[in-house]
Design a protein around this nucleic acid. Structure first.
Lengths: 355, 355
DNA sequence: ACCTAGTCTGTGTACGTTCACAGAAAACCC
DNA sequence: GGGTTTTCTGTGAACGTACACAGACTAGGT
């Protein structure tokens, strides 16, 4: 079959120009002419303002329908100095982005709130230095009125751009240190302490932890909470440190713990994915769960119900975090005062079968 | 600790105005004045055009640095009639969005290609009628130069808007029928046929399928491929139909199959999540895999390595689909001719332990 | 008939850029 | 030195909208 360009050459003997003929869009002026009124009146109808006669209104509405008019956002945001859009910045390498059980929920929560206020969410994934520059330009360019940031890095150039522009923002998780920007998060330390205590109540004697992502606040706080809970009974040798919140690192961490102390009977895994990996390692080593070893996770993600047995874990309110972050940004946009010290959401402990 | 508003009241005795003082941004004109040249020359430097003297260039660069100038994208896209952004539309209910193993990969693939060409990706999640209207307005408003659409619906108003605006677009999966728009996808039918044949080669006698999402092309095609492969041996009674590509529906579908024919020894599950559910049901029924029953999935998602045993499955090149879709849109933006009949990507069969 | 208040409409300007054009200055060639 | 080309710079117009302002028309009261 011929492509349309080839067809045109065969049939009409000329080279078809393939520049996409971007439909020339109707402007407010076209509507005005069609309806026999002025730009101002059309503008009033479009923006639902008073002081328009019934006859003009109907004529304009008909004209809008006829010429297929849609307001040009670029022009509007140029003159209004705002874009009705909020950026959602995810600063994760691609592999983590796919695995992270929370980002999707946060994104949807934020999107729900924003779209309810007729704001558009623009999501920006940063994976390289090049991305950082591009996103920084994008933010500076006035395409968004505010920003929600997931998992910011320390000394993040993006954060600096935001502060410089005084762009309304909200962090999910902890903001970079000394940043005056508001955040929404959970108390990782208290949550880790609570679930570790609950695990201790099941009568376990030798409790260890697979600690992950210690270079982040969340990872470090979960380890701190674990340490808090054990108090005198804390044994640094029973902590396996792995770099990421992943299944594979869970397997590795659990293997290390078993090797160091085969009698271990309780494990706090830094995330559900880590816990799932730990379960795999235990199954391999022939230990039963929760019979021989009790294990608890963190996140209450989709992992928790996919494992056998189902995981006891800390519920992380991802959707709620997204909602609150969006509300925080919208509040700033409306000029409301925001709590400077951040918002912490509840993290109920979900007790299932793994401990 | 006092909030900044309270601090101001205490310290200076007045009520602080909390309207966020959006930093007045420097314009091209400010730079021109600072550097002692005209707007035009500054514009030439910013856009890297020739015919600028060395002295003017250095003066302007210093001025840009000094006043902190960043071009205003709204003004730029107004005059240039383009935004350097491409929309990524996901038309799924929230619950599916979180579970779908492919969307994340498609998104990252598209983002990689787009950002490499200095395009911005704007992702738009549609979950309700209200969202549809908002996104339609957004597209019409000229905020994006092109669109990538994942899982469009038939008679989709979004699709109609795109055709009306002649917006360069690419579908991932099948576009709505009779749509002239290009698409990138896989051959679900051929892939299903291939893996079913492979399953038959393992010597299974009674092969069934847990078919899901038959209201979509992908679901219907996978069932058709299964039917193709079995030929005369196809038994309609050995097909369990479930609504969604989910773990839970996999459990249900497998239970139905077992109830209908306890001697079943081979199963093609419409997706890996469905296969994982089927494994759960089989474990519950006391059947071993692959001993008693061989089972294969579809997608090669993260599920495939989380199950015990690991799944034999069809690899779906999610990242590649996203890349190709983005290339297709960028090609149209450059005015290149695109293949009208769509692009199908390879789907290698990954043979592991479940069959 | 006059004034006033309320309702409605059109016009000019601004938003911050790019681009075409015109002109100035420099460089080059006979 | 005069012409031609090349390099460089400034200016005015446009992009499509919102908003302030001025003016016209209507209605109601004296």
């Amino acid at each position: 079959m011929l492509s349309s360009a080839e067809f045109a050459r065969e049939r009409y003997g000329y080279q078809m120009v393939t520049i996409p003929s971007r439909h020339k869009r109707a402007t407010i002026h076209d509507v005005a002419v069609e309806a026999g009124v002025s730009r101002g009146t059309v503008s009033r109808v479009v923006n639902d303002e008073p002081y328009v006669s019934a006859s003009a209104r109907t004529a304009i509405e008909a004209a809008i329908e006829k010429v297929g008019y849609v307001p040009n956002n670029a022009a509007r945001s140029l003159v209004m100095q705002r874009s009705e859009a909020v950026g959602f910045i995810v600063h994760e390498p691609h592999s983590l982005f796919l695995d992270d059980p929370n980002i999707g929920g946060i994104l949807l929560g934020a999107n729900t709130v924003l779209s309810h206020s007729d704001y558009q969410m623009v999501s920006l994934v940063i994976d390289s230095q090049r991305d950082t520059d591009r996103v920084a330009r994008y933010l500076s360019g006035g395409f968004v009125d505010g920003v929600i940031i997931v998992s910011a890095r320390r000394e993040d150039p993006i954060t600096q751009v935001i502060e410089k522009l005084r762009l309304p923002a909200a962090f999910v998780g902890h903001p970079p240190e000394q940043s005056p920007l508001p955040f929404v998060g959970i108390d990782n330390r208290a949550s880790a302490r609570a679930i570790t205590k609950r695990l201790m109540q099941t009568g376990r004697k030798r409790i260890g932890m697979v600690a992950a992502a210690l270079d982040r606040d969340s990872g470090a706080d979960r380890l701190a909470g674990f340490t808090d809970a054990l108090g005198d009974r804390f044994d640094p040798a029973l902590v396996a440190r792995v770099p990421l919140y992943t299944f594979t690192d869970g397997v590795r961490g659990m293997c290390a713990l078993l090797e160091h102390d085969p009698l271990i009977d309780g494990v706090f895994a830094a995330s559900d994915a880590v816990a799932a990996g730990a379960l795999e390692a235990l199954r391999h080593a022939g230990r039963s769960v929760p019979g021989d070893v009790g294990i608890v996770g963190f996140d209450d993600s989709s992992w928790a119900l996919r494992t056998q047995p189902h995981l006891s874990t800390v519920h992380q309110p991802a959707f709620g975090l997204g909602e609150r972050a969006a509300e925080c940004v919208l509040g700033q946009l409306r000029g409301e005062e925001q709590p400077a010290d951040g918002i912490l959401l509840e993290t109920p402990i979900i007790w299932r079968d793994s401990a």
